[in-house]
């Protein structure tokens, strides 16, 4: 899977950073518009898919370290669950982000909503990390070229 077209290869290389930037935009604006962690993660991994399609599987694989992706995939889910545990430690229910609010705030309702924003951003980031790493793993494992000679990958 490697295209010979110089135009496609060049554009893929130049578009990838912007796709990743857009993924972060989608993550950051998920609270105020359509989008969020899931979509952001998928778009982020799509940049690596584009690179692998245009420049070949080995080049794409080089951009996504295998071990890093393997570690990041469960890390995102753990961030999500960890925020839930933190809210419990702060005295609330599981994933009750309002528990992060300071007790002696002037306006308890505003403090609760501000804490909710923080919690939402945290879990969305966790979702994005898991989804981006998982999609990268899914793509690179499913499209792995058959081994031609012995021991050419480690």
């Amino acid at each position: 899977m490697r295209t010979e077209s110089v135009v496609v290869r060049y554009l893929a290389l130049r578009a990838a950073p912007f796709i990743q930037l857009y993924a972060l935009y989608v993550l950051g604006h998920g609270e105020d518009g359509p989008g969020g962690g899931f979509q952001g993660g998928v778009i982020f991994s799509a940049s690596f898919v584009l690179l692998a399609l245009a420049h070949g599987w080995p080049f794409g694989r080089q951009q996504v370290n295998e071990k890093v992706a393997d570690i990041l995939a469960p890390t995102g889910a753990l961030i999500f669950a960890g925020i839930g545990v933190l809210t419990m430690l702060a005295g609330g229910a599981f994933l009750e982000y309002g528990a992060f609010a300071k007790a002696g705030a002037e306006d308890p309702e505003a403090a609760r909503l501000a804490a909710q924003h923080i919690g939402l951003i945290g879990i969305e980031a966790g979702v994005m990390i898991t989804v981006a790493a998982s999609m990268a793993i899914l793509f690179f494992e499913m499209s792995r070229p058959p081994r031609e000679s012995k021991g050419n990958d480690a």
Binding site: A73, A77, F94, I123, S134, L138
Partner: peptide, 15 residues
Amino acid sequence: GYDTMGETVVIFTAA
């Protein structure tokens, strides 16, 4: 939130 956490875990399980 609890459902969304399950969804995230499902994605991870697939990978």
